[in-house]
Computed example of a mutant assay.
Amino acid sequence: MALLNSGDRVNDTLVIDRLLGEGAFAEVHRVRHAYLGLQAMKLFKKVASLEETHLMLDEARLLSTLGHANIVRLFDANTVQTPEGLRGFFTMEYLPGGSLENLSKAYPHSVPTAIAVDVMEQIASGLAVAHEQDPPILHRDVSLANVLIGYDGSVMRVRVSDFGLAKRADPVTRTASAKGTIAFMAPEVLTNQGYSCASDVWSVGTIAYFLLTDHLPYGETGRYSSYSFARFNRRLLPPSRYNDDVDARLDEIVMSTLQLDPQERPTNARVLADALRRRRRPPAVSYRDRDRGRARHLADEALRLHRIPGELERAADLMEEAIDLWPPLGEQHQPKLLLWRKGVMM
């Protein structure tokens, strides 16, 4: 039974709307703010003081002030009286798309590659901000349940939540919650060898692998497989073995995040985000000197012609040809071309 139910008043401005989900550590409710509309509220099951609530949220509150598009914003933290006694809670932005668990369930076999890569890159961008703090802020519990989805218009916006909570949560209940958080933990974490930025990178790679293949890395067939450490003795197949849409470069990036030795992974989320960005960027094109020279000649001719009455359309055609032949000219002349096409002489 939930600690709070629909219609319960949290304080003067917050009322419980409905339960969104729960784990061994906390309940998540949708709440209605009297002035600000819908928010999400995480209600801790064991945290019973405001001081302890603030302590748990120190890192998350710091990151929230940075206003990064891929980090969930926090609004408030306080305590509320429940049938089980005083309990700590915090409120954050409500994202109607739910978590990545919802996204993965929406596709019976694998999430479309373009969407999966977009998710991976946005998670890495959010984590990179945390990893670049001094000292780095480690998430320690990146999983399907802790990555939320919202939309800016028609654009999907991924936001990482629950920064810092895993560090202070009960290690037993944490690994038992949210459909197997342990499945997203790096080998060095499972063997108590310490946690690093590379451990968060492992978790991002696990999410990407799962979204692309509908399998957990190093696991058995199926969505949620055995969590025994012996699974790391299996050979890891690249995502392309399950998904023909995964290209060689994406294979390489995902596999790099899942190296058993943390020293062999991208050292932090910024390195991973940069690798994904380079993959997305088209390869540089080498232009011959002859093409460059002809393009400049065409551009010069266009600039001469556009001042002659009746020649503006011909000038625009020549300038467009010049830019097609040598695209760097576009930085200088594209604005002129757009005006010429509208019949405006400069």
Rank of each mutant, 00 (worst) to 15 (best):
N5Y: 06
V15I: 15
D17I: 03
G21C: 08
F25W: 03
H29N: 15
L36E: 14
K42Y: 08
A60Q: 01
R61T: 11
L63V: 04
S64I: 06
T65N: 05
T65E: 15
A69K: 04
A69Q: 13
I71L: 15
A77T: 13
Q81V: 11
T82E: 06
R87A: 06
M92G: 00
L103C: 08
H109C: 06
P112K: 03
I115L: 15
P136Y: 09
L144V: 06
M156T: 10
K167G: 09
K167D: 07
T181D: 02
F184Q: 00
A186R: 00
P187C: 08
V189R: 01
T191N: 11
Q193P: 05
Q193V: 06
Y195D: 01
S196P: 01
V201D: 00
W202H: 04
Y218P: 04
F229H: 11
R231V: 14
R235D: 12
R241L: 01
N243Q: 08
D247F: 12
A248Y: 09
E252Q: 15
S256F: 05
L260M: 11
A269N: 03
D274W: 04
R280E: 13
V285S: 01
E301L: 14
L312E: 06
A315V: 08
A322T: 11
P327G: 12
G330K: 12
E331N: 13
H333I: 15
P335V: 12
P335N: 09
K342E: 15
